[in-house]
Computed example of a mutant assay.
Amino acid sequence: MKSKQIQMYTDMIRGAGLKATPQRIGVLKVLSEMTSHPGAEMLMEALENQGYIMSVGTIYNILETFSEKGLILKLKDNQEVMRFDANTKFHVHIYNENDNAICDYFDPELEILLSSYLKEKLPDQFSLNRMELSLYA
């Protein structure tokens, strides 16, 4: 019997119009549990530690598909390495230039402020689908 958590990931994947394969469910589950914004290799190691065995190519394909469908975000770190984030809700990414870490900063007030401001300022032909804000420290 599937746990509620696995069912949630299954529903998210299906909601994006994708088949919910065990590999896709595993990648989304493990990535969602990570706060470090891992690269593909770091994600592969975390997957293996939880019993999921798949090739780097499979992981890259899944990540690319998830990104295209809006299930995850792709980020480049300070060294231009692709990193991934399963949290697609508004939050700020703070890039630490000393250790190449990416931290999340959550501020609902900031989201409301920016959304309101941009709603008023964007030209009529544009609508705000998603906001991303990055800070470098």
Rank of each mutant, 00 (worst) to 15 (best):
residue 121 K to V: 01
residue 88 T to W: 07
residue 82 M to N: 14
residue 73 L to W: 04
residue 75 L to W: 04
residue 95 Y to L: 00
residue 85 D to S: 14
residue 40 A to T: 07
residue 47 L to E: 06
residue 134 S to D: 00
residue 80 E to D: 15
residue 62 I to H: 13
residue 89 K to W: 01
residue 118 L to A: 07
residue 114 L to D: 01
residue 63 L to S: 06
residue 123 P to N: 02
residue 58 T to E: 13
residue 53 I to G: 07
residue 12 M to T: 06
residue 122 L to N: 04
residue 4 K to D: 01
residue 47 L to C: 08
residue 123 P to T: 00
residue 28 L to V: 02
residue 66 F to M: 02
residue 67 S to N: 10
residue 135 L to D: 00
residue 3 S to Q: 08
residue 72 I to W: 06
residue 115 S to G: 06
residue 103 C to N: 09
residue 102 I to K: 08
residue 9 Y to W: 14
residue 63 L to Q: 07
residue 91 H to D: 05
residue 6 I to K: 04
residue 34 M to F: 05
residue 2 K to V: 10
residue 100 N to C: 06
residue 123 P to W: 04
residue 100 N to V: 11
residue 127 S to V: 06
residue 104 D to T: 04
residue 53 I to M: 13
residue 85 D to R: 09
residue 68 E to H: 10
residue 134 S to P: 04
residue 97 E to R: 07
residue 39 G to P: 03
residue 78 N to K: 10
residue 68 E to T: 02
residue 3 S to F: 03
residue 29 K to P: 04
residue 58 T to L: 13
residue 123 P to K: 01
residue 16 A to I: 00
residue 37 H to R: 11
residue 60 Y to A: 03
residue 71 L to S: 00
residue 32 S to D: 11
residue 16 A to V: 02
residue 116 S to I: 09
residue 131 M to K: 06
residue 44 M to R: 15
residue 88 T to E: 05
residue 91 H to Y: 03
residue 45 E to L: 08
residue 24 R to G: 08
residue 74 K to D: 11
residue 77 D to R: 01
residue 24 R to S: 15
residue 59 I to P: 06
residue 34 M to D: 09
residue 17 G to K: 08
residue 110 L to A: 13
residue 105 Y to S: 13
residue 65 T to I: 06
residue 104 D to E: 07
residue 57 G to E: 10
residue 19 K to Q: 14
residue 107 D to V: 01
residue 30 V to S: 03
residue 58 T to R: 03
residue 68 E to L: 13
residue 91 H to N: 01
residue 7 Q to Y: 15
residue 131 M to W: 09
residue 75 L to D: 02
residue 123 P to A: 01
residue 86 A to S: 04
residue 57 G to Y: 07
residue 135 L to H: 05
residue 104 D to Q: 03
residue 78 N to V: 14
residue 85 D to E: 09
residue 4 K to N: 08
residue 117 Y to F: 15
residue 87 N to V: 01
residue 62 I to N: 13
residue 1 M to Q: 09
residue 105 Y to K: 12
residue 39 G to S: 10
residue 82 M to W: 12
residue 71 L to M: 05
residue 58 T to C: 07
residue 62 I to F: 14
residue 24 R to H: 12
residue 77 D to N: 14
residue 34 M to T: 08
residue 59 I to G: 05
residue 54 M to F: 14
residue 69 K to I: 02
residue 35 T to N: 14
residue 41 E to M: 06
residue 53 I to Y: 11
residue 43 L to I: 14
residue 69 K to V: 00
residue 91 H to R: 02
residue 40 A to C: 11
residue 66 F to N: 00
residue 102 I to V: 14
residue 81 V to G: 00
residue 42 M to A: 15
residue 28 L to S: 03
residue 15 G to R: 01
residue 3 S to Y: 06
residue 116 S to R: 12
residue 12 M to K: 12
residue 119 K to L: 08
residue 118 L to Y: 07
residue 14 R to Q: 12
residue 2 K to R: 12
